[in-house]
Lab assay of single mutants.
Amino acid sequence: SLSVDNKKFWATVESSEHSFEVPIYAETLDEALELAEWQYVPAGFEVTRVRPCVAP
Results as ranks from 00 to 15, higher is better:
1 S>T: 10
1 S>Y: 08
1 S>R: 10
1 S>W: 08
1 S>P: 10
2 L>C: 15
2 L>Q: 11
2 L>W: 08
2 L>N: 10
2 L>H: 13
3 S>N: 11
3 S>P: 12
3 S>R: 12
3 S>D: 09
3 S>E: 08
3 S>C: 15
4 V>Y: 08
4 V>K: 14
4 V>E: 08
5 D>S: 14
5 D>W: 08
5 D>H: 15
5 D>C: 15
5 D>A: 14
5 D>R: 14
5 D>E: 12
5 D>V: 15
6 N>D: 06
6 N>G: 09
6 N>Q: 13
6 N>S: 12
7 K>F: 08
7 K>T: 07
7 K>N: 07
7 K>E: 04
8 K>R: 09
8 K>C: 15
8 K>F: 13
8 K>N: 04
9 F>P: 00
10 W>S: 03
10 W>Q: 02
10 W>R: 02
10 W>Y: 08
11 A>C: 10
11 A>D: 01
11 A>F: 06
11 A>K: 00
11 A>V: 14
12 T>I: 05
12 T>C: 08
13 V>W: 01
13 V>P: 00
13 V>D: 00
13 V>M: 04
13 V>Q: 00
13 V>H: 00
14 E>I: 14
14 E>M: 12
15 S>C: 10
15 S>L: 06
15 S>A: 06
15 S>G: 08
15 S>I: 07
15 S>T: 09
16 S>P: 13
16 S>C: 08
16 S>W: 09
16 S>L: 09
16 S>Q: 10
16 S>V: 07
16 S>G: 14
16 S>F: 11
16 S>T: 09
17 E>A: 09
17 E>M: 10
17 E>C: 09
17 E>Y: 12
18 H>I: 14
18 H>V: 13
19 S>N: 05
19 S>A: 09
19 S>Y: 07
19 S>H: 08
19 S>R: 12
19 S>K: 11
20 F>I: 04
20 F>Q: 03
20 F>L: 05
21 E>F: 05
21 E>P: 01
21 E>N: 07
21 E>A: 05
21 E>Y: 06
21 E>M: 07
22 V>Q: 02
22 V>N: 02
23 P>L: 15
23 P>I: 15
23 P>Y: 09
23 P>N: 03
23 P>S: 06
24 I>C: 05
24 I>F: 04
24 I>Q: 01
24 I>R: 01
24 I>V: 07
24 I>H: 01
25 Y>G: 02
25 Y>M: 06
25 Y>Q: 04
25 Y>A: 03
25 Y>I: 06
26 A>G: 03
26 A>M: 02
26 A>E: 01
26 A>Q: 01
26 A>Y: 02
27 E>F: 10
27 E>N: 14
27 E>M: 14
27 E>I: 07
27 E>C: 07
27 E>T: 14
27 E>H: 14
27 E>S: 14
27 E>W: 07
27 E>L: 13
28 T>E: 02
28 T>A: 03
28 T>C: 06
29 L>T: 04
29 L>Y: 08
29 L>G: 04
29 L>I: 11
30 D>Q: 15
30 D>R: 13
30 D>M: 12
30 D>I: 10
31 E>F: 06
31 E>C: 06
31 E>P: 01
31 E>S: 06
31 E>Q: 13
31 E>V: 05
31 E>K: 15
31 E>H: 11
31 E>Y: 05
31 E>W: 04
32 A>N: 00
32 A>S: 02
32 A>V: 02
32 A>G: 01
32 A>K: 01
32 A>E: 00
33 L>V: 09
33 L>S: 05
33 L>K: 14
33 L>H: 06
34 E>S: 11
34 E>T: 10
34 E>K: 15
34 E>W: 13
35 L>A: 06
35 L>G: 02
35 L>F: 07
35 L>Q: 08
36 A>V: 05
36 A>P: 04
36 A>H: 01
36 A>S: 03
36 A>G: 03
37 E>N: 12
37 E>D: 04
37 E>A: 06
37 E>S: 08
37 E>Q: 12
38 W>K: 15
38 W>P: 03
38 W>T: 14
39 Q>H: 10
39 Q>N: 05
39 Q>P: 04
39 Q>K: 10
39 Q>Y: 15
40 Y>E: 04
40 Y>A: 04
40 Y>D: 04
40 Y>H: 04
41 V>F: 06
41 V>R: 07
41 V>T: 11
41 V>C: 05
41 V>Q: 09
41 V>N: 14
42 P>W: 08
42 P>Q: 08
42 P>H: 11
42 P>Y: 06
43 A>D: 11
43 A>R: 11
43 A>Q: 15
43 A>Y: 13
43 A>G: 07
43 A>P: 06
43 A>K: 13
44 G>W: 02
44 G>A: 00
45 F>S: 14
45 F>T: 02
45 F>H: 04
46 E>Q: 09
46 E>G: 04
46 E>A: 07
47 V>G: 01
48 T>N: 03
48 T>C: 00
49 R>D: 12
49 R>H: 14
49 R>F: 09
49 R>A: 14
49 R>Y: 08
50 V>C: 00
50 V>W: 02
50 V>A: 02
50 V>D: 01
51 R>P: 00
51 R>M: 07
51 R>D: 04
51 R>Q: 06
51 R>C: 05
52 P>I: 12
52 P>W: 08
52 P>E: 14
52 P>M: 11
52 P>R: 07
52 P>V: 10
52 P>Q: 10
52 P>S: 08
53 C>Y: 05
53 C>D: 15
53 C>I: 05
53 C>H: 12
53 C>Q: 07
53 C>R: 03
53 C>N: 09
53 C>F: 05
54 V>P: 11
54 V>K: 10
54 V>G: 08
54 V>F: 12
55 A>I: 10
55 A>P: 10
55 A>W: 10
55 A>Q: 10
55 A>S: 12
55 A>T: 12
55 A>G: 12
56 P>S: 11
56 P>I: 09
56 P>C: 08
56 P>N: 13
56 P>W: 07
56 P>K: 08
56 P>F: 09
56 P>L: 09
